[in-house]
Design a protein around this nucleic acid. Structure first.
Lengths: 243, 243
DNA sequence: CGGGCACATTGACCTGGATCAATGAATCCG
DNA sequence: CGGATTCATTGATCCAGGTCAATGTGCCCG
């Protein structure tokens, strides 16, 4: 799995360098830690890369690592024995993963785009949390934010129509500063397949495809390529998303 | 809303008493705090009671309080403008509520059974978290546990059949030590209405009722009263729940 | 450059659960 | 104690989205 990995070098004067220059720092819980203390963080992290399609967390495996995604994107999912799958979220740069209380992971994680991640062992992670209260506070904030998102997703899965689900999905994707959203018709990249979208929205591939086609025929969106969608009418899409 | 409330009395020698003798303490994050420090906690808490049917958190309202449920049970839910409702969880004694990062609550909460709760203002809660790292750790654990439950619920809502959803619901209810589960056929109390169950499982009242009737006709459960269900065959129910 | 392969789209039909509509069954009062 | 009200159950019908099947549409590699 680990294509590239760097053993900790605690004594080095440049020990904090990898974290200091990390492009994901601003998006990550790591920014709770002062520059001067970054060496401590860097000493505990093991960096690795994961290629698309590769699984780096397996549901049911011993949960002995925490991960911080520093590049790329991944999907989190749960499987039923007969193969039914629910994708519980897509995660990108800066996302923290694996905060399990139980002894095993409750979900699997698979790279969609080439992923780079920092891995921390369970014990080291807890040691860091003890040392840096600000880090723990940041994690708590993240967890709370994710809970809110999870509740929103439950509403979507339990009560929204296919049309509303797809609209909600696109609405969320084009909302945060994710991409050049500068008041022109926002274009969203879809790194995931139709199958992933379907398993995220609790639908089938066919329904996702049909619904997107219909939204296009109504002039709400354009689909230059299967992995790119231009939102022509964000306001109407948002209205659709909420019923 | 607050039928009964007690102003803080920091100086009193008995200041920690209400927390010390609190029946919910063992089930709550409060047990992260030493007996000697309970006065601090008690000084910040405002106790209140809420009757069934009363809402004590309103989605969209300013999120300026945190709550700790010390008795009774409540439902958490999100509403759509046209009245569609998704219940995101049922909570009982010891449950912590209102950990919002955003300025407003992301869900509403309504009592099912008479509820007693401790309310902490936002600023006081954060002050407590700063004073008692163990409390913050406990909250983080709780949040992680809830995230795992939320993911499980997403699987249920996105991919399970009505039969599997109802079976899962009963399975979870009879699993934890909630009630005299002593190896005899466990009996679960359902304080919530069929309508609540339906909105929790992403189904209609009718489907819930029909599914329960079918499970009964198959000898898996008995329904002595609408609010009581006896699980005759927990193993088969669990198998059903997971597909 | 063309055959093969994986993914996406589109169409035709079917079904699980929703909707609509009575009919119990329990609780509350007057 | 009886009418009203609310909640749960059961039945009849309908339809959104699933299933099955065929047809694009790239893209990779020989």
């Amino acid at each position: 799995m680990a294509v590239f990995s760097r053993p900790p070098t605690p004594g080095s004067p440049l020990a904090q360098e990898p974290c200091l220059s990390c492009g994901a720092r601003a998006d990550s819980v790591c920014n709770a830690i002062e520059d001067a203390d970054l060496g401590r963080l860097a000493a505990f992290a093991v960096v690795s890369e994961v290629q698309p399609g590769q699984t780096f967390i397996e549901e049911g495996d011993p949960a002995d690592s925490f991960f911080n995604l520093t590049a790329g994107s991944a999907k989190l999912y749960k499987l039923m024995t007969d193969g039914r799958r629910q994708i519980t979220g897509f995660v990108g740069r800066g996302h923290f993963l694996g905060l399990a209380v139980s002894a095993t992971y409750a979900f699997s994680a698979e790279a969609i785009e080439p992923v780079r991640l920092c891995r921390f062992s369970r014990v080291r992670m807890f040691r860091l949390l003890g040392e840096f209260p600000a880090l723990e506070r940041r994690l708590l904030e993240r967890a709370a934010t994710e809970l809110v998102a999870a509740q929103e997703q439950m509403l979507l899965l339990g009560r929204k129509t296919a049309r509303e689900r797809v609209a909600s999905f696109l609405d969320v994707l084009c909302r945060p500063g994710a991409g050049p959203c500068g008041r022109a018709a926002p274009v969203v990249a879809l790194p995931m397949s139709r199958s992933d979208i379907a398993d995220y929205l609790g639908l089938t591939i066919e329904t996702v495809s049909r619904t997107l086609s219909r939204l296009r025929s109504e002039g709400l969106i354009e689909i230059p390529s299967p992995t790119t969608i231009r939102i022509c009418d964000p306001a109407r899409l948002a209205a659709l998303a909420s019923g």
